[in-house]
Design a protein around this nucleic acid. Structure first.
Lengths: 191, 191
DNA sequence: CGCGACGTTGATTTGCCTCAACGATTGTGG
DNA sequence: CCACAATCGTTGAGGCAAATCAACGTCGCG
């Protein structure tokens, strides 16, 4: 059931079958319909989620009542709100399935004991977090150094298949501009 | 010599004096003059740096030859370029002392052996990385949800003393606008 | 079928940038 | 220790990238 997660972990650290079995005890697999929520604003986030199939987005609602997409997570990515998870504070974000989704749920309450029994996982998460942080930093770099149009060109050539998977208004929001503006960029490209 | 780092680590995980001594063997303390570099663009980043005293900034140079501040690090923060450090690839960033700085240097080459001898540090870095990631996510949130003026107001009330420590052109860059614009915001505030 | 969600297009507005010129402050070599 | 240059901050005029607003086409789904 967890095979894609086990495979992912073994890309970074060794993991025996016994250890994998322990991991399985501490996690739960969950299926989500499109638009179902893993987390809503003002809830305290209680778990870390590994996307086995599908796509989720994290977003928040601005003062002007528009949804701002914060990030996407697809197969083999973890998604959570660490600020809420570790601080036990109400989250400022929503986490929602953009497609039908299968996730492995690692509850915060189980984490410490799991790491005690399988210390390799501590290393695994350290490595995954380093990658996530590098990605977040790169994101900030692109936001600062490229125009809206450049960000779209860059993103859609880097992830041509992903662009097909999400509605344009979500992609526009993620890239930091309006759906109308994205529509105009695409109109230009075709001609 | 490393006392501020040891103290910081003990805020998150237990660490015996023997373990602290091991850590000391693997690290080196370095003094930097203002404007000295820990990393330059196109170099491969080779270490993780813990700021014991002073302030550093990470920045990059845009196509238009302007410096874009990516982040600041002050006392009790780690700073590095994880993308370059883990991928052994040339960095896109500069890391520079904004004030005279004292850092503890943890070389990438020493890291694996250090974690083997002191597994608690693996946990420590996992926790620190979670905090760094949460901070990076919050940064993106503010960039998306607030105007330039709002970001300045928010930042300068959240960190009133820090605002005094860096030149305004660096702060403006960090907040995502020009020095001229910051100057105009401040002119408004006084009246 | 009909309604709501999504995408498109055009007119207008605006937040912030660019450029330029000018004070103030810092620091450095003679 | 002063003179002078370089760096940093301020102010104003003009411009632009992208937002906002509004109206309309279209597709998928209950």
């Amino acid at each position: 059931m967890l095979s894609s997660l086990i495979t992912h972990i073994r890309r970074f650290v060794p993991l025996t079958d016994e250890e994998a079995a322990v991991l399985e005890q501490f996690t739960e697999v969950r299926e989500l319909k499109k638009k179902a929520f893993l987390l809503k604003e003002k809830q305290v986030c209680t778990a870390n989620y590994f996307i086995m199939k599908g796509c989720c987005r994290s977003y928040f609602v601005t003062e002007k009542d528009t949804e701002q997409v914060h990030l996407f997570a697809i197969e083999n990515w973890w998604i959570t709100d660490y600020h809420s998870l570790e601080g036990r504070t109400p989250s400022q974000f929503f986490i929602q399935a953009v497609e039908p989704v299968t996730v492995a749920v690692l509850p915060r309450a189980a984490q410490d004991e799991l790491f005690r029994q399988v210390p390799q996982l501590e290393k695994y998460f350290r490595i995954v977090l380093e990658k996530a942080l590098a990605a977040a930093h790169l994101r900030v770099k692109y936001l600062f150094s490229q125009s809206g149009e450049e960000r779209y060109e860059h993103f859609s050539t880097a992830f041509p298949d992903f662009v097909q998977r999400v509605p344009q208004y979500m992609l526009a929001s993620y890239l930091g501009f309006t759906p109308e503006f994205l529509s105009k960029i695409r109109a230009k490209r075709i001609s």
